[in-house]
Design a protein around this nucleic acid. Sequence first.
DNA 1: ACACGCATTGTCGACGTTGTCATAGAAATA
DNA 2: TATTTCTATGACAACGTCGACAATGCGTGT
Lengths: 338, 338
Amino acid sequence: MVSIISVAKAAGVSNKTVSRVINGEPYVTEETRERVEKAIRDLGYIPNMAARLIRSSRSNTFGIITDYVSTTPYSVDIVRGIQDWANANGKTILMANTGGSSKREADIWKMFQSHRIDGVLYVTMYRRTVDPEAGDVRIPTVMINCRPQTDELLPSIEPDDYQGAQDLTRYLLDRGHRKIGYIRLNPILLGAQLRLDAFRKTAADFGLAEGDLSIRLGMEGPVGAEKNYIFAVATEMLQQKDRPTAIMSGNDEMTIQVYIAAMALGLRIPEDVSIVGFDDFRTVSLALKPELTTAALPYYDLGLEGAELLNSVVAGNKAPSSRVMPCKLVERTSVRSV
Amino acid sequence: MVSIISVAKAAGVSNKTVSRVINGEPYVTEETRERVEKAIRDLGYIPNMAARLIRSSRSNTFGIITDYVSTTPYSVDIVRGIQDWANANGKTILMANTGGSSKREADIWKMFQSHRIDGVLYVTMYRRTVDPEAGDVRIPTVMINCRPQTDELLPSIEPDDYQGAQDLTRYLLDRGHRKIGYIRLNPILLGAQLRLDAFRKTAADFGLAEGDLSIRLGMEGPVGAEKNYIFAVATEMLQQKDRPTAIMSGNDEMTIQVYIAAMALGLRIPEDVSIVGFDDFRTVSLALKPELTTAALPYYDLGLEGAELLNSVVAGNKAPSSRVMPCKLVERTSVRSV
DNA sequence: ACACGCATTGTCGACGTTGTCATAGAAATA
DNA sequence: TATTTCTATGACAACGTCGACAATGCGTGT
């Protein structure tokens, strides 16, 4: 493989001068610079990152540890945000996912260390608390979509589930809905409680009584092996004699079953029932007809901002400990005014 | 950072002996080995991959180049397969996606080279032909879910769309369906043509006339900006006086709209229409009620086998040029016998 | 006693790069 | 003119690891 030395020979300069050209350092004549650059092109020289790292102990590499995020359809935009940032800032990304195994997670931390990674982005598929298996490692770390279980002060970036659910609830209330159903997400997810709280609080603040709300559990159990009550619960909810005029569901995916339940009962959407989701999981929200009004989780921004934050932590600027990004309401056609 | 030398000092041996212990080489007394291992534990020593690479010019790293796969919900299992293989075989994965930009792709190849990657897995979201921007690079490469546009002989691994569609068609025919609708995938996808061909051929071989088949285009246009006719086309198809008893659709995602179209017309699934999909995109196939009978794309295996194949190419075993993995029919409850 | 083989350990240099310091000539200043 | 300050370049060591080879010591067969 062609090294800096062959380039130096070809250009008739010392290897240090080549190094200067590569790194854009000053004190190189224009003429020398051009000669070196030509040699680089001619020989197809590409710098060896490993050698650079060994000398300067800066890998310019961030690691991403995920639970499942890179291998499941959800929250995949977080990774896109990180990669875009990395791409724009000349960083390399090393990615690994634990598949939920903590032994594997420990191995990943080791692997990251052996690559002398500058920092770690710890990303989860669903918003939840986590307990990183970092051991006694002290690599700068930023949590995305999750927060440490212990009271360690790792900086984190999370979506504002509360505000998103609040906006959706207000949206329904503003359009005249006074009986509203809510199908709850799996309660082990951090977002589930926040969304439900926001729904309850917003409805109560507006003056609705607890009896105006039908709240049902849609799913429960460990991630990956949940019990699913959505279809049954939606059907039951819509068969009530005083049925809700609108249903809000824990996320978009659940909404598929709500649509089907409604249609199986001969109800039209949105004429007979309005429906809103949460997440803006577009595979679903755009495929449903009518298209789904929902609150978009700011996944892409989570990734982008997370990478940016990690960068500043690595650079030594002590970071604001925690941060929350807003969810944006996406209005489509699944809600009507009553 | 603690290096092999500090370990050597702590254990009272030479650095070479430490190296031998780390790499499990012979000719080390049990007693010495233990002393070294203790020193490693005590100091928390972790080998420096960069130094190792620079010395032995083997990075033990594979690169994944994707178009969008790591950042969209589809075919994400390919990555899971690759990562599982890498994990089981002590390889590191460097992942980058082009987002469709060929400039970015060229940069990625350069970046991979600068990390002295052992091989590249070139992965696409949808099965299609591609034209890698590798420049004059000669890194061993395996294509997954795609094949080179030029007649370069890069080994590739693809799903058997033809066989999958054949199995689904036979499944419907075996259950007595004699009028079958087909909603076509975007024709720019390689799989689209194969699936359609298999459908046509299998139906014809069975003795159905072209008039027994309703074939409609479901979507067209560039990936990411398709025009979508699915709902309209499904509705039209089901309003025919002599409507099909079964509809097969290009993929599972399209099936959401077919379900909704059917239900909006008051048709029950599967009593009035049977429906099958393709892909086993489980977010959809399991969320639909009744759950969807479909053909599972072997994404996970594509990734696993692709990594395995790349490994053997890197090792110098010249590889079988191309390979196809079968799709498995997943029987659920969206089809009835007539 | 001697040579021989083998297990065990160590010395040293090389990988590709960059940091430190030295050098040489040119330009600026005294 | 002598001295200082720049600019442009090079020589060399060092980063952490491993490969090639050398050295040591111990048992075995003669």
